[in-house]
Computed example of a mutant assay.
Amino acid sequence: MRKILSRTAVAALSMAFVTEAMATEWNVSLWGKRRAFTEHVEKMAELVSEKTGGEFTLNISYGGLSKNRENLDGISIGAFEMAQFCAGYHRDKNPSITVMELPFLGVSSLEQEIELSMAVYQHPAAIEDLGRWNATLLMPSPLPQYNLVGMGDAPAKLDDFAGLSVRATGGIGKAMETVGAVPTSMSATEVRQAMDSGVVKAVAFAPHAHMSYGTIENATWWTTNLNPGTVNCPVVVNTDALADLSDDHREALLGSVEESLDHYVTTYNGKTMDAWGPALEERGIAKVAFSDAEIAAFKEAAAAPAAKAWIEENTARGLPAQELYDLVTGMIANGS
């Protein structure tokens, strides 16, 4: 009997060891709180767990692992296995994907933003660029065109932006400079305090962020049709960690990208945008619309110079900048 029990105990211990060895846990570094911007990561965690019977789990942290501007650095040293960041936070670290942040590209939907981003992410130059940080681009966090929420007197024309301090990163910041605004780059988590203290008088965000970070609480106006561009915020994984996954776990992860993005788009176009209009109306925030002529002049002043400067700067870095720019603008022109 003792021999039988011993064999049973050994078998149970062996099974427990095998089960533990098969289990995989990844830490995921996000920031802020759960919101429309993170729904694809939340969905991916759900799908990966379901597909692997709980053997592969994504432990999502909102700010507990790293500051948002340091997520790419954390990925590079393997401090965590997955992270989200925005290209404009550190343009010199990921210049290839900043092509998606150029002003007035003319992206018309979240679906198009996904298609364009994935094309850029799969370009050899982008793969090599992010490879310097031991990072593999997994999926974008598609955002609609940014618009401004501000305090004080509402601008009646573009000239009224002259001297206005605006939180605007990347290409949007460059575009705002052309109409005389003074752009300031700061992370999303710093914006509300900057508004409250008067450091900035207006903020360029997508609708979900205006609601999530409270910029509409003190706002008196917002622009309905400025649409200068958006930011590109990929989700990346540590390349070594991806390679170390079993074939089944890797397939569970990579095979969940499309469904996770579909969930994100459905949530953003539905729940988030349904809440945006009422949130403005409840607070009596005035809607500012500019004439077609002013928008056309804004685009003419901002788009071509920014593209030219981006191509020249990144060609000097050794990137095929013209090729990347042509890839994006060509897809847009063809209706992709």
Rank of each mutant, 00 (worst) to 15 (best):
A16I: 08
G32K: 07
F56W: 01
L47V: 02
F56M: 03
L13I: 13
S14F: 14
K51S: 06
A12P: 07
G54H: 07
W31P: 03
L13C: 10
M15H: 02
L47S: 01
A12M: 13
A9I: 14
M22G: 04
V28G: 01
K51A: 07
R34H: 15
E20T: 09
F17P: 01
G54Q: 08
G53Y: 12
S29Q: 04
A45F: 00
S14A: 14
V48N: 04
A21D: 04
T19L: 12
E55M: 06
G53T: 02
L13F: 08
A9Y: 05
R35E: 11
K33I: 06
E20W: 11
R34L: 10
T52S: 14
W26Q: 03
R35C: 09
R34V: 12
A21K: 11
E46R: 07
T24N: 08
L13V: 13
G53A: 05
E55D: 15
A16F: 02
V48Y: 03
L30N: 07
K33F: 04
E25T: 13
S29E: 02
E42L: 10
V28L: 05
M22N: 11
V48S: 05
A12G: 12
M44A: 12
T24C: 14
K51I: 10
A12E: 08
E39N: 02
A36G: 04
G32N: 06
M22T: 10
S29C: 02
K43T: 15
E42S: 13
E46Y: 03
E46W: 07
A9R: 12
H40Q: 13
T19F: 09
A21V: 08
T57H: 06
H40C: 00
K33S: 11
K51C: 06
H40S: 06
A45P: 02
E25V: 11
S29P: 00
F17Y: 05
